[in-house]
Design a protein around this nucleic acid. Structure first.
Lengths: 123, 123
DNA sequence: CTGTATCCGCGAGGATACTG
DNA sequence: CAGTATCCTCGCGGATACAG
């Protein structure tokens, strides 16, 4: 690191969303309603494991992108929700979604997994 | 894969940009001007290796996001450039950049590497 | 200059079992 | 229900050498 040009906002943003499952998780939360742990675990058809979900959630929480709310109940209930910052980050899903639609018009895709998301509420 | 709900455009888009270096590479190309191999290799302060650059470029090319043009010269010259599809994909950099700016207003960042990019021309 | 080819370390991440 | 705790595989990706 001899380059003195630091503090690039774009690098920061790219780092925040890198991580194999973060965009998937964020897309599940992007409709704005809180989601429970088990809900997130099941709502993807890719094989997201408990360990991975937990670690990615922790990082997103550390970065101030989501909040984790624990309800002192039995059985326990934990809800994850976007912060204001997280909601802003999720604006990228709209262009991403549109890009995907465009892309599918001109290519063949018969093997792609489906992803739960809430773009309708975003738009 | 027992879920019958396939063909999600968002999943497709997420897959297209996943890969450790793709967003960095795309951001370097996002000003629209063609870039040479060596140029891309040097213009990031992270340690992107030749192998990684090549593999990521190949995938982006395969996905129709960039084009690779070889000039039959000596010494050889190869230029990489966004396709129409790639340019559309790069629209996410604007919200990402803005998110990073917002984020930096409320957090401390003294260790982040800088990234060559061309948002000005995009805006 | 723009790449392959090869080797290989290492840690992300998957599987499984267990806990408050 | 919502997680830890462990173990272990596997392939990403770094280093190096070489080629057209």
């Amino acid at each position: 690191m001899r380059d003195p040009r630091l503090h690039c906002p774009l690098t920061l943003a790219v780092k925040a969303i890198s991580g194999k499952w973060k965009l998937y998780i964020l897309s599940m939360l992007s409709d704005g309603t809180p989601k429970r742990y088990g809900e997130l675990l099941k709502s993807t058809c890719e094989n997201l494991t408990e360990k991975m979900l937990t670690s990615q959630l922790r990082e997103l929480e550390k970065d101030g992108i989501i909040t984790r709310k624990v309800y002192p109940e039995v059985p326990p209930r934990v809800e994850y929700m976007l912060t204001e910052s997280g909601r802003k980050l999720c604006t990228i899903f709209e262009p991403l979604y549109e890009w995907g639609v465009d892309y599918m018009k001109t290519h063949r895709h018969d093997q792609l997994p489906w992803l739960e998301m809430g773009l309708k509420k975003l738009a």
